[in-house]
Computed example of a mutant assay.
Amino acid sequence: MYTLNLNINESKEYFDKNFYNQDSSYLILSTPKELNLIKKILDIDDITFKDCMNFDENIKLDLFDNYDFLSINTFELENNKALIQEINIYLSDNFILVVVKDDNFIFKYVKNMILGNFNMEDNPTVSLFKINYLIFKSIIINGFESLEKVEDMILDIEDQMMEKVSEDQISKINYVRGITRTIVKNTRPLLYIGDRILKENIRYLKYSDVKRYNLDNLQGIDFGIDKLYNFALATRELADKLLDLYSSKVGEETNDLITKLTILTGISAPLTIITGIYGMNFKYMPFLNFTYGYPIILLLMVIIVLLGLLIFKIKKLL
């Protein structure tokens, strides 16, 4: 557990039961397992406490008397896999509590802020507002970065198909389509959160002295969420188009094969006619008793083949 006292700019990397004072402002970082240590100290209710203990796909924004509780899902691309994790944030008048697993990017980000990489404001309350904004901003930026990685995966598959189509590519296409659908599914609820934050006057918009500052920031966050969702939709459409490209390339290869078979048939047709004629059982036939008749016919067949290849080559069918 990590804590930062915004009044005296003091950070701690361990749990201290005497760390909390109602007259000071704090940034607190906890894992779900550590939350029980500060549950009574911060007067956390049982419902949100249970929400922090168990992962679910529900995104929430609950407004309480003592704090506002926000639960959202974030996504990261790790080893070409979409990793969905939950972030729970308590927004109080004098503290921000972030509850998240220690392998999440937000845990590392907030930890970095606590350990001295955060520019404090003169007013601790303003610092809380700023922290709230920066956390949301980090979530959005990470979303864009993850989507860019997915886009690179899609473009890589597309480049491979432009060179040569193979059967294993269809499984890659379906896999990346699954990732994009998971991302869109977990990004869409953020639109709801952004709208509620602005419309329902959450805690950090109730203070007249800093409302304008924080309102501008939250409007920027709402705009960023819209852009992130649109990017997610565009990435999903790009992934879906891979199927069309795959079908098109397979069709091209099939047409190319059919064209070659047609050319082969066209070249072999005269040969079939000649062999058919000389396969007839007649007593009197041209060249039948001619000494050089057989090699002449063979030579004629070769000339026909070469002439056919030359014609199709000139017409750029080969």
Rank of each mutant, 00 (worst) to 15 (best):
F69A: 08
M153F: 05
K241D: 06
D168M: 01
Y14N: 12
G220A: 03
V184P: 01
V126Y: 05
E163A: 13
L309N: 09
Y278K: 05
I157P: 00
G276I: 04
L271T: 10
S268F: 14
I38N: 05
L218A: 10
A232L: 02
M301G: 06
N289V: 15
D45E: 09
D209F: 13
P124F: 03
A82F: 02
L63W: 12
F287W: 14
T275K: 03
N119R: 15
V126A: 01
F15Q: 09
L190E: 02
D51V: 03
Y90R: 13
M1V: 08
F64E: 12
L261N: 01
T182N: 11
K241R: 10
K50P: 01
I274F: 07
K227M: 01
E57D: 10
Y278F: 14
E121L: 10
S30A: 09
M301W: 03
Y175K: 14
Q85S: 13
A234T: 15
N58D: 07
Y14G: 11
I59C: 06
E237T: 05
Q85T: 14
V302G: 07
I273Q: 08
L198W: 06
L233M: 11
I135L: 08
K227W: 05
V302F: 11
V305Q: 14
E167H: 04
P189S: 02
N18R: 08
D93S: 07
Y292I: 15
